[in-house]
Protein backbone atom coordinates (compact mmCIF):
# COMPACT_ATOMS: atom_id res chain seq x y z
CA UNK A 1 0.00 0.00 0.00
CA UNK A 2 0.94 3.60 -0.21
CA UNK A 3 2.98 4.92 2.66
CA UNK A 4 3.06 8.45 1.33
CA UNK A 5 2.10 10.28 4.47
CA UNK A 6 1.45 13.91 5.15
CA UNK A 7 -1.74 15.89 5.27
CA UNK A 8 -2.16 16.14 1.50
CA UNK A 9 -0.06 13.60 -0.36
CA UNK A 10 -1.52 14.59 -3.73
CA UNK A 11 -0.58 18.23 -3.43
CA UNK A 12 2.86 17.14 -2.21
CA UNK A 13 3.34 14.99 -5.33
CA UNK A 14 3.09 18.12 -7.47
CA UNK A 15 5.36 20.23 -5.27
CA UNK A 16 8.75 19.42 -6.83
CA UNK A 17 8.28 19.97 -10.53
CA UNK A 18 5.90 18.41 -13.02
CA UNK A 19 4.11 15.24 -11.94
CA UNK A 20 3.69 12.18 -14.10
CA UNK A 21 0.29 10.57 -13.39
CA UNK A 22 -0.24 7.23 -15.14
CA UNK A 23 -3.52 5.29 -15.21
CA UNK A 24 -4.16 1.56 -15.48
CA UNK A 25 -7.34 -0.48 -15.14
CA UNK A 26 -6.85 -2.65 -12.08
CA UNK A 27 -7.03 -6.38 -12.76
CA UNK A 28 -6.22 -6.05 -16.46
CA UNK A 29 -5.61 -8.68 -17.69
CA UNK A 30 -5.37 -10.45 -14.33
CA UNK A 31 -4.67 -9.65 -10.68
CA UNK A 32 -0.99 -10.69 -10.46
CA UNK A 33 0.12 -9.12 -13.75
CA UNK A 34 -1.72 -5.97 -12.86
CA UNK A 35 0.20 -5.69 -9.57
CA UNK A 36 3.48 -6.00 -11.50
CA UNK A 37 2.36 -3.38 -14.03
CA UNK A 38 1.39 -0.78 -11.44
CA UNK A 39 4.68 -1.34 -9.61
CA UNK A 40 6.54 -0.93 -12.92
CA UNK A 41 4.91 2.50 -13.37
CA UNK A 42 6.13 3.52 -9.92
CA UNK A 43 9.64 2.30 -10.84
CA UNK A 44 9.44 4.31 -14.05
CA UNK A 45 8.92 7.56 -12.17
CA UNK A 46 5.19 7.93 -11.49
CA UNK A 47 4.41 10.66 -8.97
CA UNK A 48 0.73 9.70 -8.52
CA UNK A 49 -0.99 6.59 -9.91
CA UNK A 50 -4.63 6.53 -10.97
CA UNK A 51 -6.08 3.07 -10.40
CA UNK A 52 -9.18 2.35 -12.45
CA UNK A 53 -11.83 0.26 -10.71
CA UNK A 54 -13.70 -1.29 -13.67
CA UNK A 55 -17.42 -0.47 -14.08
CA UNK A 56 -19.63 -2.27 -16.59
CA UNK A 57 -20.81 0.98 -18.28
CA UNK A 58 -17.73 3.21 -18.69
CA UNK A 59 -19.44 6.04 -20.60
CA UNK A 60 -16.41 8.37 -20.60
CA UNK A 61 -13.93 5.83 -21.95
CA UNK A 62 -12.82 5.20 -25.50
CA UNK A 63 -12.28 1.71 -26.97
CA UNK A 64 -8.83 1.12 -25.42
CA UNK A 65 -9.98 1.47 -21.83
CA UNK A 66 -13.40 -0.10 -22.53
CA UNK A 67 -11.57 -3.25 -23.63
CA UNK A 68 -9.32 -3.13 -20.55
CA UNK A 69 -12.43 -2.90 -18.37
CA UNK A 70 -13.93 -5.94 -20.07
CA UNK A 71 -10.69 -7.94 -19.56
CA UNK A 72 -10.49 -6.95 -15.89
CA UNK A 73 -14.14 -7.74 -15.18
CA UNK A 74 -13.86 -11.08 -16.94
CA UNK A 75 -10.82 -11.86 -14.80
CA UNK A 76 -12.96 -11.31 -11.70
CA UNK A 77 -12.18 -7.76 -10.56
CA UNK A 78 -14.68 -6.40 -8.02
CA UNK A 79 -14.61 -3.48 -5.57
CA UNK A 80 -13.62 -5.84 -2.75
CA UNK A 81 -10.78 -7.33 -4.82
CA UNK A 82 -9.76 -3.80 -5.79
CA UNK A 83 -9.21 -2.88 -2.14
CA UNK A 84 -7.21 -6.09 -1.61
CA UNK A 85 -5.15 -5.12 -4.64
CA UNK A 86 -4.38 -1.68 -3.24
CA UNK A 87 -3.38 -3.24 0.07
CA UNK A 88 -1.11 -5.71 -1.77
CA UNK A 89 0.64 -3.03 -3.84
CA UNK A 90 4.24 -2.27 -2.95
CA UNK A 91 4.65 1.31 -4.10
CA UNK A 92 5.33 4.56 -2.29
CA UNK A 93 3.45 7.07 -4.40
CA UNK A 94 -0.04 8.39 -3.67
CA UNK A 95 -2.87 6.42 -5.27
CA UNK A 96 -6.09 7.78 -6.72
CA UNK A 97 -9.13 5.59 -7.37
CA UNK A 98 -10.85 6.34 -10.68
CA UNK A 99 -14.29 4.82 -11.04
CA UNK A 100 -17.97 5.49 -11.75
CA UNK A 101 -20.39 6.63 -9.12
CA UNK A 102 -22.63 3.57 -8.96
CA UNK A 103 -19.81 1.40 -7.60
CA UNK A 104 -19.03 3.99 -4.94
CA UNK A 105 -22.71 4.35 -4.11
CA UNK A 106 -23.47 0.62 -3.77
CA UNK A 107 -20.49 -0.45 -1.66
CA UNK A 108 -21.04 -1.69 1.86
CA UNK A 109 -24.13 -2.20 3.93
CA UNK A 110 -25.52 1.35 3.83
CA UNK A 111 -26.28 3.25 0.62
CA UNK A 112 -24.23 6.29 -0.19
CA UNK A 113 -20.52 6.89 -0.67
CA UNK A 114 -19.38 6.76 2.97
CA UNK A 115 -18.54 3.01 3.30
CA UNK A 116 -16.55 3.05 0.05
CA UNK A 117 -14.55 6.11 1.09
CA UNK A 118 -13.91 4.68 4.54
CA UNK A 119 -12.59 1.46 3.06
CA UNK A 120 -10.51 3.31 0.46
CA UNK A 121 -8.94 5.41 3.20
CA UNK A 122 -8.13 2.30 5.22
CA UNK A 123 -6.12 0.72 2.36
CA UNK A 124 -4.24 3.92 1.57
CA UNK A 125 -6.11 5.57 -1.30
CA UNK A 126 -5.51 9.33 -1.33
CA UNK A 127 -8.34 10.52 -3.55
CA UNK A 128 -10.94 9.90 -6.24
CA UNK A 129 -11.69 10.78 -9.84
CA UNK A 130 -15.32 10.04 -10.78
CA UNK A 131 -16.03 10.82 -14.46
CA UNK A 132 -19.83 10.66 -14.18
CA UNK A 133 -20.12 12.88 -11.12
CA UNK A 134 -20.38 16.58 -11.96
CA UNK A 135 -20.17 19.18 -9.18
CA UNK A 136 -24.00 19.23 -8.95
CA UNK A 137 -24.10 15.65 -7.64
CA UNK A 138 -20.81 15.58 -5.76
CA UNK A 139 -22.01 16.77 -2.36
CA UNK A 140 -22.28 13.43 -0.57
CA UNK A 141 -18.93 12.17 -1.85
CA UNK A 142 -17.22 15.45 -0.95
CA UNK A 143 -18.58 15.17 2.56
CA UNK A 144 -17.30 11.60 2.96
CA UNK A 145 -13.90 12.62 1.56
CA UNK A 146 -13.69 15.42 4.11
CA UNK A 147 -14.58 13.03 6.91
CA UNK A 148 -11.77 10.61 6.00
CA UNK A 149 -9.23 13.17 4.77
CA UNK A 150 -9.28 12.18 1.09
CA UNK A 151 -9.22 14.33 -2.03
CA UNK A 152 -11.87 14.62 -4.73
CA UNK A 153 -10.27 15.45 -8.06
CA UNK A 154 -12.60 17.20 -10.52
CA UNK A 155 -12.42 17.06 -14.27
CA UNK A 156 -12.46 20.39 -16.13
CA UNK A 157 -13.55 20.01 -19.77
CA UNK A 158 -12.83 22.27 -22.75
CA UNK A 159 -16.54 23.17 -22.61
CA UNK A 160 -16.47 24.19 -18.95
CA UNK A 161 -17.24 27.90 -18.69
CA UNK A 162 -16.40 30.41 -15.97
CA UNK A 163 -19.57 29.89 -13.93
CA UNK A 164 -19.17 26.13 -13.85
CA UNK A 165 -15.49 26.43 -13.07
CA UNK A 166 -16.34 28.12 -9.79
CA UNK A 167 -18.75 25.33 -8.81
CA UNK A 168 -16.15 22.74 -9.71
CA UNK A 169 -13.30 24.29 -7.84
CA UNK A 170 -15.51 24.59 -4.77
CA UNK A 171 -15.80 20.79 -4.49
CA UNK A 172 -12.27 19.94 -5.68
CA UNK A 173 -9.08 19.16 -3.84
CA UNK A 174 -5.79 17.41 -4.61
CA UNK A 175 -5.43 18.46 -8.22
CA UNK A 176 -7.57 19.44 -11.20
CA UNK A 177 -7.87 16.96 -14.05
CA UNK A 178 -7.78 19.11 -17.17
CA UNK A 179 -9.42 17.29 -20.07
CA UNK A 180 -7.24 18.18 -23.06
CA UNK A 181 -9.91 17.75 -25.72
CA UNK A 182 -13.55 16.79 -26.16
CA UNK A 183 -14.53 13.17 -26.48
CA UNK A 184 -13.59 10.04 -24.64
CA UNK A 185 -10.26 8.77 -23.37
CA UNK A 186 -7.79 7.52 -25.96
CA UNK A 187 -4.31 8.10 -27.29
CA UNK A 188 -3.97 10.66 -30.07
CA UNK A 189 -1.16 12.25 -31.99
CA UNK A 190 -1.59 15.93 -31.23
CA UNK A 191 -2.18 18.10 -28.22
CA UNK A 192 -5.11 20.42 -28.74
CA UNK A 193 -4.97 24.20 -28.61
CA UNK A 194 -7.84 23.92 -26.20
CA UNK A 195 -5.42 22.60 -23.59
CA UNK A 196 -3.65 25.92 -23.60
CA UNK A 197 -6.98 27.75 -23.36
CA UNK A 198 -8.08 25.56 -20.46
CA UNK A 199 -4.83 26.11 -18.59
CA UNK A 200 -5.16 29.87 -19.10
CA UNK A 201 -8.69 29.81 -17.66
CA UNK A 202 -7.44 27.90 -14.62
CA UNK A 203 -4.55 30.27 -13.92
CA UNK A 204 -6.20 31.72 -10.83
CA UNK A 205 -7.07 28.34 -9.32
CA UNK A 206 -4.88 27.37 -6.41
CA UNK A 207 -4.62 23.64 -7.20
CA UNK A 208 -2.14 21.75 -9.40
CA UNK A 209 -3.42 21.20 -12.96
CA UNK A 210 -2.78 17.82 -14.53
CA UNK A 211 -3.64 17.45 -18.21
CA UNK A 212 -5.04 14.19 -19.59
CA UNK A 213 -6.85 12.73 -22.65
CA UNK A 214 -4.71 11.84 -25.64
CA UNK A 215 -1.16 12.14 -24.30
CA UNK A 216 0.90 9.20 -25.55
CA UNK A 217 4.54 10.30 -25.96
CA UNK A 218 7.32 12.05 -24.08
CA UNK A 219 7.24 14.85 -26.62
CA UNK A 220 3.53 15.45 -26.02
CA UNK A 221 4.14 15.39 -22.27
CA UNK A 222 6.83 18.02 -22.80
CA UNK A 223 4.50 20.19 -24.89
CA UNK A 224 1.76 20.06 -22.30
CA UNK A 225 4.06 20.90 -19.40
CA UNK A 226 5.71 23.65 -21.40
CA UNK A 227 2.21 25.09 -21.92
CA UNK A 228 1.86 25.38 -18.16
CA UNK A 229 0.53 22.04 -16.90
CA UNK A 230 1.68 20.94 -13.44
CA UNK A 231 1.35 17.32 -14.47
CA UNK A 232 0.44 14.90 -17.24
CA UNK A 233 -2.09 12.08 -16.98
CA UNK A 234 -1.53 9.14 -19.33
CA UNK A 235 -3.92 6.20 -19.57
CA UNK A 236 -4.68 4.72 -22.97
CA UNK A 237 -1.07 4.71 -24.20
CA UNK A 238 -0.15 2.54 -21.20
CA UNK A 239 -3.25 0.36 -21.45
CA UNK A 240 -2.28 -0.24 -25.10
CA UNK A 241 0.99 -1.78 -23.87
CA UNK A 242 -0.90 -4.05 -21.48
CA UNK A 243 -3.28 -5.07 -24.30
CA UNK A 244 -0.42 -5.83 -26.71
CA UNK A 245 1.34 -7.90 -24.08
CA UNK A 246 -1.84 -9.80 -23.35
CA UNK A 247 -2.66 -10.46 -26.98
CA UNK A 248 0.85 -11.64 -27.85
CA UNK A 249 1.21 -13.77 -24.69
CA UNK A 250 4.25 -11.75 -23.71
CA UNK A 251 5.70 -12.72 -20.30
CA UNK A 252 4.48 -10.40 -17.54
CA UNK A 253 8.04 -9.16 -16.79
CA UNK A 254 8.58 -8.15 -20.42
CA UNK A 255 5.34 -6.15 -20.50
CA UNK A 256 6.25 -4.61 -17.15
CA UNK A 257 9.63 -3.59 -18.57
CA UNK A 258 7.98 -1.92 -21.53
CA UNK A 259 5.60 -0.09 -19.20
CA UNK A 260 8.49 1.07 -17.06
CA UNK A 261 10.42 2.45 -20.02
CA UNK A 262 7.29 4.16 -21.40
CA UNK A 263 6.80 5.68 -17.96
CA UNK A 264 10.40 6.94 -18.01
CA UNK A 265 9.89 8.47 -21.45
CA UNK A 266 6.76 10.31 -20.24
CA UNK A 267 8.32 11.47 -16.99
CA UNK A 268 11.44 12.68 -18.78
CA UNK A 269 9.28 14.42 -21.35
CA UNK A 270 7.45 16.22 -18.56
CA UNK A 271 10.75 17.30 -17.02
CA UNK A 272 12.05 18.48 -20.36
CA UNK A 273 8.92 20.53 -20.95
CA UNK A 274 9.39 22.08 -17.55
CA UNK A 275 12.97 22.99 -18.43
CA UNK A 276 11.84 24.65 -21.65
CA UNK A 277 9.24 26.65 -19.77
CA UNK A 278 11.50 28.00 -17.05
CA UNK A 279 14.77 29.37 -18.42
CA UNK A 280 17.25 28.42 -15.72
CA UNK A 281 18.17 31.46 -13.62
CA UNK A 282 21.93 31.74 -13.17
CA UNK A 283 23.52 29.65 -10.46
CA UNK A 284 20.61 27.29 -9.84
CA UNK A 285 21.32 24.71 -12.50
CA UNK A 286 22.75 21.99 -10.33
Amino acid sequence: MSDAGGSDPLAAAFADGPAFVPYLAVGDPDYESSLAYVEALAEGGADVIELGLPFSEPIAEGPTIQNAVVRALEAGMTPTRFFEFVADLDVDVPLVCMTYYNLIYQFGSEQGPRPFVERAASVGISGFVVPDLPAEEAGALREACDEFGLDLVSIVAPTTGEDRLEKLVAVSSGYIYVQARLGVTGASSSVSDRTTESLARLEGVDLPKAVGFGISSGEQAATVVEAGADGVIVGSALVDIVAEGHESNEPTEATADRLESKARELKEGALEGYGRRTPTPEGTSD
Binding site: I59, A60, P131, L133, E137, I155, T159
Partner: peptide
Protein backbone atom coordinates in the same frame (compact mmCIF):
# COMPACT_ATOMS: atom_id res chain seq x y z
CA UNK B 1 -27.53 14.68 -13.72
CA UNK B 2 -24.79 12.05 -13.42
CA UNK B 3 -22.85 12.81 -16.59
CA UNK B 4 -19.27 13.73 -17.50
CA UNK B 5 -18.39 17.38 -16.97
CA UNK B 6 -17.82 17.78 -20.72
CA UNK B 7 -21.58 17.26 -21.23
CA UNK B 8 -22.78 19.55 -18.46
CA UNK B 9 -22.71 22.77 -20.51
Amino acid sequence: QYVPEALMP
